[in-house]
Amino acid sequence: MEVISILSEMDWAVVAPLLVIQAILLIVAIIDLIRVDNTHGPKWMWTLIIVFINIVGPIVYFIFGRRQE
């Protein structure tokens, strides 16, 4: 119950940008993962990392997962 009341109290105009940024990162990372031929390490591992680790997952993929080429 408490969680619900907090959710309704929150000002969504303030919090929405955070969620949008997180969503864009996730989508871009997934599209990129599909597009590239190969990554450092298996692709299924990166899929799990991107989807299940908030915000940090996509960033880690962009920095360490992508092959330069």
Partner: peptide, 17 residues
């Protein structure tokens, strides 16, 4: 092409707010 122009600005916005 390597999507730096997407993720770097987003991260910077995120850590700033």
């Amino acid at each position: 092409r390597n999507v730096k122009w997407i993720w770097v600005p987003l991260i910077m916005i995120l850590i700033a707010i």
